[in-house]
Design a protein around this nucleic acid. Structure first.
Lengths: 350, 350
DNA sequence: TCTGGCACTCTCTCAACCTGAGTGCCAAGC
DNA sequence: GCTTGGCACTCAGGTTGAGAGAGTGCCAGA
């Protein structure tokens, strides 16, 4: 699957062809290309080069008398070697950072805003995964009685995230009892990373099992349960899906249905994003490269975003394979950076 | 806009025609209808009746040599006067109540499950509004310091709902100070309905303004702010949108795009559901009856659901106008009832 | 190695035509 | 007066064939 090496002329022609096809959306013929390129080659010469490119699997004809269209490999070579990025529109950057600043009150809101920015500015579908919480530290745990057999557990994380859950319990507890458990557990667990809390709790149970009274045991179970089902909501925020409806490139209706189904299910796309962590920056899956069938006629442009230097999530867009990569790639890149910046709250400004 | 009254024969024929059209999806001709009806009338006679029905605006021909199709008014009359409901599949009822029981741990999860049930069982899009919280009572307020200029406010409601929000503050507060505010406010406000908390707070401020210290004032503002932006997330849960993609009836691609946009925006659909409160039970908007353009070629079947006897939200489905109402209506109805039952947690079982 | 020329292929569009389905209307029958 | 069979008419949809347009492949010559 390695990309072939091309001489300068072939590179130039492939670049011109892909750019032309991206902007016009119709197969590019030799005549068109001969006019669009500064080499001033005749259409016939160009045809020869195109025949070579076709043999290499970089372009192909939909039919005999149509022009040429880039294949997935053609796009891949174009993006890897030939693409010249467009400068970012500074107005766009201002919009993104402004909106993100406004939303910085709530993590959830921040993620949603980032997703919307991506979809609005690209006119495709925007994706953002919720930031991973495994490195967040526990600050406090509280239990509040709701009724004789239901207790509300509240977990407060160091960064202000709150998780809560109603737990069924086997007997009634007083407010005092529950407050005491909360204080006890908070003391033991505060400052620990959430991902380790479970282990600590289990170890604790082993260590002191004999003199552990039933209440403590129950409290530990409660906490574990509350930690376990971390984020109940969706862990992927999709927006602007409707942008993909009339996109023309996606002709087959059944295929479109499956694409939307994928957006609803979220699981597979999330998995895909999680796997894209090979690269440090923007990563691109063209057409079937992702190996995920519903995205067959789409491209996925993703980037990781960071909190305190650690990658905690991914964002990106899904659009047609025929997409102005030179604009979209920088946009996804900058959005990831700005989201990262917005996630690290500026304590003590000035 | 009042519906015409029909003689028995016309009613019978209209009913047969609508049922036939709903099941087959192609315009119904006089010949077909003559075979399908027990009256044993000749096609010619039926043509006469159909001409009358057309004159009344209940059916119409797509073109000269096609059969007849119900108009919106035809559907309306059919639903209001002619429809005989199908008995509910008891297996379906079991599925719904089972899934809802499993999800009863979290309100959010419950709502999402209900929406998914609706979409799975109808094969259309399911909608559920989040339950209105205005009658929930406040149980407790807490403030937790996050950093020198950010405080986390947590509101716990009587039913176990928790809302939280990071608030920017102008100076650092100690944990003790904040705990004290929380206790004070909790005492004043506990047991009040959330919708009145704001007023109470304002009155309180007026009453004791002179000797109110800066901290108290700030705490009140904090609380108000936290109450104000009640539910930050979406207040409508949509699922199974992708079911509507290949639906055939929705031919126009642009129309479909706008339908999906409507699902994303949510606001207008939410508004529509809120306005459907005239009726006590299931309500149906056929095609353009809703007055909302993106739903032009769709029908909306909704029902309110209750908590403690009070209507707190709406659920329903969006599908094509040509829809098996006899099955969908009972399904929406029972789902609303079961959701209501699941929302009222059975304290002290046995 | 590049170029012009030429035959060839294929899609797309348009118009003409045919068929099948269903209607509207009319006159005859019960 | 309602019902029925008959008949002419209309229209959508499928098929066919011709023509235009675009682009290619290949070849011979510069």
């Amino acid at each position: 699957m390695s990309l072939p090496t091309l001489n300068e002329r072939a590179q130039h022609l492939l670049k011109a062809l892909v750019e032309r096809y991206i902007s016009e959306g119709i197969p590019v013929g030799s005549r068109t290309l001969s006019q669009a390129t500064p080499f001033s080659l005749s259409p016939a010469t160009i045809r020869n080069v195109m025949a070579d490119l076709e043999e290499l699997g970089l372009i192909h004809s939909p039919h005999t008398s149509a022009g040429r269209v880039p294949t997935i490999q053609g796009y891949r070579l174009f993006i890897n070697q030939l693409l010249t990025m467009r400068d970012l529109d500074s107005a766009q950057v201002d919009i993104i950072s402004g909106e993100l600043r406004q939303a910085s009150g709530s993590r959830q809101h921040l993620i949603e805003t980032a997703s919307q920015m991506l979809s609005h500015l690209t006119r495709y579908a925007g994706l953002v995964t919720l930031p991973r919480r495994e490195h967040a530290r526990l600050r406090q745990i509280e239990f509040i009685p709701l009724s004789s057999n239901r207790v509300l557990a509240i977990l407060v994380m160091d960064d202000g995230e709150v998780q809560n859950r109603v737990l069924p319990v086997s007997r009634a507890y007083t407010q005092g009892e529950l407050r005491e458990f909360g204080a006890l557990l908070s003391e033991r667990l505060a400052g620990q990373e959430a991902s380790r809390v479970r282990d600590t709790l289990l170890a604790e149970m082993d260590k002191v099992r004999s003199d552990l009274n039933a209440l403590m045991r129950e409290a530990i179970l409660l906490t574990e349960q509350a930690m376990g089902e971390s984020t109940p909501g969706p862990s992927l925020v999709v927006s602007g899906q409707s942008n993909l409806v009339g996109l023309g490139d996606i002709t087959n209706l059944e295929r479109m249905r499956r694409l939307f189904e994928a957006f609803e299910t979220k699981r597979d796309i999330l998995h895909l994003l999680d796997q894209s962590q090979r690269a440090d920056g923007v990563e691109i899956f063209i057409g079937g490269e992702s190996g995920y069938d519903p995205l067959e006629e789409c491209s996925l442009v993703t980037a990781p975003y960071r909190e305190k230097g650690r990658v905690v999530g991914y964002l990106g867009i899904v659009g047609p394979t025929r997409m102005p990569y030179d604009q979209v790639i920088p946009l996804v890149d900058i959005t990831a950076r700005l989201l990262g910046a917005a996630l690290n709250p500026a304590d003590e400004p000035q």
